[in-house]
Structure formats: C-alpha cells, structure tokens
Design a protein around this nucleic acid. Structure first.
Lengths: 156, 156
DNA sequence: TTGCTCCTCACGTCACGTGAGGTGGC
DNA sequence: TTGCTCCTCACGTCACGTGAGGTGGC
C-alpha cells in the first residue's frame, strides 16, 4: 500500500542534519523520547519524516542550550507528545470551543520553555558583563603602562 | 608556623557555596583542574582559600553555561593557570614593560571566553524568538476562535 | 566522649562512543 | 555482485553519584 505519503529518510542522514550520531537517535528511541517506532520489523531500517527531524532538533536544542537531562526532556516531551496527539485531534474536531481548549492546553508548555530560555539569557548576560569588565580593566591598565613607559603621566 | 594568612575553608562549605558536591571537587582535583593540592598529608582535610573558590565558580559557570567538557576546561584552565602564575610574578616584576607583557598574554584568554558567551547568546536569542513567535500565533489563534464562537467575524 | 564532617576506595549510573559480526536496499 | 548504510548486541568512557568503612577536628 504505497500511499503518496511524506518522504522518509534514513537514520544516518537524520543524524547528519541534526548534528548528532545515529547512536544518540537509537538511544533516545530506547528511552521513548521519540514517538514509538510504531510498527518496524525487528532488524529493518528506521525511517523518519520531516516532523520527526524537527522534533529531534528541538530536543537537541533543549539539551544543548538549556542543559536539560534526558529525564527532564522526557517530561517536556510527554507534554509535547500530548500536544502532538491533540494536533491529530485538531482535524477531527470541528467545534471552535474544542479547538480553543486544545490551544489553551498547549500554551503553558511553550511558555515554560521560554521561561527557561529567559533565565539562561540572564545568566549569560551577567557572565558577559563580568568578562567585559575584566577585559576593559586589562586594556586600561595596558594603556596606563604604555603611558608611563613613554613618560606620559597616567591619568587618575 | 601559623602565619596570619587567608582563612581556609573545608570542602563541604566550598561545595555548598559553589552549588556542587564534594565529590565533584575531588574529581576536579584528580583531573588537575585545581591548583595542585600542594602539600597535603594523605588523609588530611582539604582546605581552600577564597581564590580557590572563585576559581571553582568560574569553572562551574563555564561548564554549565557554555557546556564545555572537562577536557576543554582543562585547556582554558591551563591558560588561566599560567595567568595565575603570572599574577604571582606581577609583584616581583617592577618593570612596566614586563607588566605590560603579562597583561597582553592574559587578554586573549578572557577574550576567547567572551566570544564563546556571545555565540551562546546568539543561539539563545534565536531560540527565544522562535518560541515567542509560536506563542504569539497560538494566542491570536485563540482570540480568533473566541471571536468566532461569539459571532464576531474574524479578521483577515 | 559524642557528633559531625572529612577521608579513601570502589562500584553504580547517565548519556552516549565504539567496535564486532551480520543483514538489507540502490 | 559489489559497496554502502543499516541492524543488534555489548563493552568502554566521561562525569560524576553513592554507599562502605574508617579517621580527625571542634
């Protein structure tokens, strides 16, 4: 039954595109971070859709940029999983009221991610300011030393 | 010979202050990330100065905020180690020219850290923008649904 | 003396890395 | 048929976590 469905891509290319290894993808599947491998004959090749790739990219970003553990990712992922599930219901649900409910339940999940990003940004800004201060002091010090060795009196 | 030197603090308090465990500190010492334990009788308590604590804080920040491996930290630390060594020479060196050289060698190290921080900030800003866009679209969608269910025609 | 924190092994764990040996699709 | 990528164990590694059993300082 070869429907004209979305193109499927193999694990190696997915790994290259996302910037991780095939091992990592298999490990995440083992932990249940990716949607079930559904029906895949034991030993046959894994195939991924564009949606799967986007999902992996998000997981990797949350891991790398926010330093979340895979346990924490699982939590967030379960929420996103539910979101995915709701997205499927979306087409089926015709009522605006139902649709509104679906969107409302999805919002806090995204909001939480944004909060985490904001906190990270704050810490990085602090760090950057500190490094800049350090660098600035070193440069003025250098300038002072140069002035002294050329006979120019240092300001102060 | 109890000199009136800087106060020393034990590993547990250091761990609390920095927000890590004693095990991590011992592991870092084992890897040579902290200045040599110098002369410590095998089995006796480790004692740390304020400078040691500041150093550990920096290492942990580089690890957490930038996601550096301990190998990468070792590289940066060796440069910082050299910087530390130079700082000791500082007092001894009277010549401005020598001092200028010391500062000049220390600058690129700090600059490199700042570059890494900048790159991280860029990625986080991208991520934040994406999440905000997502959130915004969800909110307008919700508003549209609300308008429709109350009979108000949706814009567009 | 009694707690408390510290010490040194040493094994466990998380998140993969890295082959070994074998099968499947262009 | 020949490469190439894929598959499944399974052991190794990095960065610690977590006791076990014992010693030291207020």
């Amino acid at each position: 039954v070869s429907q004209t469905s979305e193109p499927q891509v193999r694990i190696g290319e997915v790994a290259d595109q996302v910037g991780i290894t095939a091992r990592t993808i298999r490990y995440y599947e083992e932990l249940g971070l990716l949607g079930d491998p559904a029906t895949r004959a034991k030993g046959s090749h894994r195939l991924y859709t564009e949606a799967d790739i986007a999902r992996l990219r998000e997981l990797v970003r949350l891991r790398d940029l926010l330093g979340l553990t895979l346990d924490e990712l699982t939590e967030l992922a379960e929420a996103a999983q539910l979101q995915q599930c709701l997205r499927a219901q979306w087409a089926a649900s015709t009522g605006d009221r139902e649709r509104a409910t679906i969107v409302r339940t999805a919002i806090p999940n995204v909001q939480r991610q944004l909060d985490l990003v904001r906190a990270r940004q704050q810490h990085l800004a602090d760090f950057a300011a500190e490094l800049e201060g350090k660098l600035g002091r070193m440069h003025t010090l250098l300038a002072d030393l140069r002035r002294q060795s050329t006979g120019t009196p240092a300001r102060r």
